[in-house]
């Protein structure tokens, strides 16, 4: 079992990233808290020795995405929140950002991860492929299609 200090450091380091992933998938702050708790307990109990901080972060992201998928599959999950309600919950989101966030959250689930990991976390397509366990070409295709969809929604601006 990992030390309390180690787990608390990981909470400080990764809870932002995890919360974003949870909101992307579950659209619920309450569920995000549950998922973060589950993932950190798994992290605490895990014996995996990470080669680097990057390796550790990739593990956290993968486990969080899987936990979100499991919850979505769960028969008992009934908490769903309207997008506008969710965006309003976050005070720090400006009206312009909320428009983008809404656009991203409206994307089909398969595109959300690649957009988040590429544009926010700064991962390359091969890195995303490794984290998500997908083919690199598939990731490229998902990225292209997601960009196209966002462009249509947000008014044709170029995505870098």
């Amino acid at each position: 079992m990992r030390s309390e200090i180690g787990v608390n450091n990981a909470i400080k380091l990764y809870s932002d990233t995890m919360r974003r992933i949870c909101i992307l998938h579950l659209k619920s702050y309450h569920d995000a808290e549950d998922i973060c708790q589950t993932v950190f307990i798994k992290y605490m109990c895990s014996d995996i020795e990470f080669e680097s901080a990057e390796h550790e972060k990739a593990w956290i992201i993968r486990v969080t995405i899987n936990a979100c998928k499991d919850l979505l599959k769960s028969f008992f999950r009934s908490r769903t929140v309207n997008l506008n309600e969710l965006i309003c919950e976050s005070d720090s989101v400006s009206s312009q950002s909320s428009e983008v966030l809404e656009a991203v959250l409206s994307l089909p689930p398969k595109y959300k991860n690649v957009i988040h990991l590429h544009y926010y976390e700064g991962y390359t397509a091969p890195e995303i492929a490794e984290i998500l366990g997908k083919n690199v070409n598939t990731v490229y295709t998902l990225l292209t299609r997601a960009k196209k969809l966002l462009k249509e929604t947000l008014g044709g601006e170029e995505l870098a």
Partner: peptide, 30 residues
Amino acid sequence: MHNRIKNAFDGIQADEAFEKKLMTKVAKRR
């Protein structure tokens, strides 16, 4: 656009209260 997406995601953060709550719950579970 890159910046717009980044800014949008920046709005979703785990505040100190969220982190503390997590730490307490994980410690309890420990």
